[in-house]
Design a binder for these strands. Structure first.
Lengths: 219, 219
DNA sequence: GTCTATAAGGGGATAGAC
DNA sequence: GTCTATCCCCTTATAGAC
């Protein structure tokens, strides 16, 4: 049995001038698409559902995004851009490893709070073997990550943190912060809440920073 | 926009006597279903694909599992049974918190290694809002978890571990162990490997135990 | 830009012979 | 238990009027 075929990500076309109405509609459509793809998966989501949710007719939606796949990839690219943009250990202010890592963790968690649906769509895509963004991810993730891995390794060399494998550290940070978006259903069920509050996210941030920093020998 | 309707999980019927051929075929079908649901999601998976993968005709498959939903829920119930069965802090041997937690973490990670597809199907289901197993989960997860939470709280009261929120500890353990199944595509991409090896899982286990135990004040 | 109509194909499930 | 045939709905996408 073969896994789904890889598809190269459609590059965003640089439209020279987008009318106000186009910009507004595209935004509404993208927000709805994020929600519907997160709730039903790629195949389970239908253009009809997205159209209904955004208050735009199905045929009109296809005027703005000419195919389901194009819309899906736009959603994926949105969340990836947010992650790749904000998530650099290097870009965090200060020199202190503890400070940099704390900020990184809290930033990542903040995105789980503000963009849960984007995170869920991305998670679904990766779980399914990244058929639509595998190539794109390969080209864009590793390079950025390498710089951060190097930085952590330099901290280890300087004796500032315990000897650990930086890759597994990042896997841990990514998974334990994203779980508050991706697995929010389960977390809400366990905590017996309808929604996760600001306070829940603050608690999570405090917890994660406490465990991870102390765990690698900081503080 | 409404989220998917909840469906109560179909209870497993106790067939008094299942022929040898039925048992064998059901097993093959379930294994293929796990793989196909993991690769394509609930809607994206088709009975046809599952049938092809298992070497059984689509119509014959429907003789054994009378609907797609029934097959899907059987897959979900399988992985949940494995988790709920093995994952009790209380059942781990020994009295030592460090020993119990290490074993719990390694057991959970082992399931990621041996049942990656079941884990992926479950992850997809939760991400999509648990439309098919929400009720079942609610009835079966919280009670088991509560005993473990109480145990951790007793350790805190005895001063054996730092003051932490046990719930967030479990969220961290669950997410950081499951990521090696659910996000294996991304991890393989970062580590530049076709498959995760026994050694990779050992490294992950060592890393997670080191960070989490030290992080909560053990050792 | 937005609408009505519809083509074209996929996929779940059933009927009934063997 | 397994097969052939088929029904029927759903969904993507296009054509073309306004």
């Amino acid at each position: 049995m073969t896994t789904p075929l890889p598809n190269t990500l459609i590059e965003v076309k640089k439209t020279r001038r987008r009318s106000r109405i186009r910009v507004a509609h595209e935004e509404k459509i993208l927000a709805s698409a994020e929600f519907v793809f997160a709730s039903y998966g790629y195949t389970g989501a239908t253009i009809e559902k997205i159209a209904k949710d955004s208050g735009i007719s199905k045929q009109n939606l296809l005027y703005y995004f000419s195919s389901k796949q194009e819309l899906y990839q736009a959603v994926l690219k949105n969340i990836l851009a947010i992650w790749l943009d904000k998530l650099n250990l290097q870009n965090q202010v200060g020199d202190d490893p503890a400070e940099k890592l704390s900020q990184y963790i809290r930033d990542k968690l903040k995105i789980s709070q503000t963009h849960p649906n984007g995170s869920k769509v991305f998670a679904n895509e990766i779980i399914n073997g990244a058929p639509h963004i595998g190539d794109y991810l390969k080209r864009n993730l590793n390079e950025k990550l390498q710089a951060d891995v190097d930085l952590v390794n330099s901290w280890i060399a300087e004796g500032k943190v315990d000897v650990i494998d930086p890759y597994h550290l990042f896997f841990m940070i990514w998974s334990s912060t994203q779980t508050y978006a991706d697995f929010s259903t389960q977390i809400q069920l366990v905590l017996n809440k309808e929604e996760l509050t600001e306070q829940d996210f603050n608690n999570a941030g405090d917890f994660l920073c406490q465990i991870i920093l102390k765990g690698i020998g900081l503080k």
